[in-house]
Computed example of a mutant assay.
Amino acid sequence: MAKKHKILNLIETGEGKQLDFKFEVSDAAKIARSLVSFANTSGGKLLIGVKDTGEISGIMSEEELFMIENAAAKYCIPQVPFSYKEWHLNGKKILEINIVKSTNAPHKTPDQNGRLKAYVRIQDQNKLANGIQMKIWEKLNPQRDIKFVYSENAKKLLNMLGKYDSLPLKQIVSKLSLSRFKIENMIAELIIMRVINMTVTESITSFSLRDPLDDD
């Protein structure tokens, strides 16, 4: 039995956190959002010439690669590095774009109003990075020292999380007598220290105590 082509196996897994299908690339500014989302999250692949349904349409020219190069260089700040491969299957060409998880996050790209925004990959969607994620990146800046004080408020937060499987930020804010700004800063520091986890879905962001056996 003939071995199934690597690309077919990849397509069968479907779109997700680390895989996105594109029928074509016609707008460098728009595709930049996918590049920064992958770079800011866990890395991933773009398959150009594949419809959302998984049907292989193929690409007709080198225009798509030019658009990706233009997007990475001009619309991603800082620039997002990538590698690529071309695959030929049943007379159709597929462009595979590989983006690794960045050590230089956050990467940003202009939104519709020209304002620089950071995006992350949530399931199979590109979404704006939330305030806590932005604070995590800010605190991880190598030019800044993280000075965390294990305060009474931090103890209250950890005790609270210990009573639940997880809690959304709104409930945490309602239970602690602190400003949202201070709570977000405290949560960001505890995430960096690998004490709590942040789980982000399309509908909610929640927090839980980190299992010491968790392996990120």
Rank of each mutant, 00 (worst) to 15 (best):
S26L: 05
D27H: 14
D27I: 06
D27Y: 11
A28W: 04
A29I: 03
A29N: 05
K30S: 07
I31F: 09
I31M: 10
R33I: 13
R33G: 11
S34Q: 11
L35T: 00
L35I: 04
F38N: 03
A39K: 05
S42P: 00
K45H: 15
K45G: 09
L46M: 06
L47W: 01
I48Q: 00
G49I: 00
V50Y: 02
V50G: 02
D52E: 13
D52N: 12
T53G: 12
T53F: 03
E55I: 15
E55Y: 13
E55D: 14
E55Q: 15
I56T: 02
I56F: 10
S57R: 11
G58L: 06
M60H: 07
S61H: 09
E62L: 05
E63A: 14
E64D: 10
L65D: 02
L65W: 08
F66E: 08
M67I: 07
I68D: 07
E69M: 02
N70D: 14
K74A: 11
Y75Q: 00
Y75H: 12
Y75N: 01
Q79V: 07
V80W: 06
F82T: 00
F82D: 01
S83M: 00
S83Y: 07
W87T: 08
L89Q: 10
L89T: 04
N90P: 03
G91L: 02
G91I: 01
K93A: 00
I94S: 02
L95Q: 06
I97R: 03
I97A: 04
I97Q: 00
I97D: 08
I97V: 14
V100M: 08
V100I: 10
S102K: 02
T103W: 05
A105W: 00
P106N: 11
H107Y: 05
K108M: 11
T109N: 08
P110T: 01
D111P: 12
N113P: 01
N113M: 08
G114W: 03
R115T: 12
R115I: 08
L116C: 09
A118S: 15
Y119T: 12
Y119R: 14
V120I: 15
R121D: 13
I122S: 06
L128R: 09
A129Q: 13
G131W: 08
G131S: 12
E138L: 15
E138W: 14
E138T: 08
K139D: 09
N141T: 11
N141K: 09
N141W: 10
Q143E: 11
R144T: 11
D145V: 13
I146R: 08
I146M: 15
I146D: 14
K147M: 10
K147A: 06
K147Q: 13
F148S: 12
V149G: 04
V149A: 06
E152K: 02
E152H: 07
N153P: 02
N153Y: 15
A154S: 15
A154L: 07
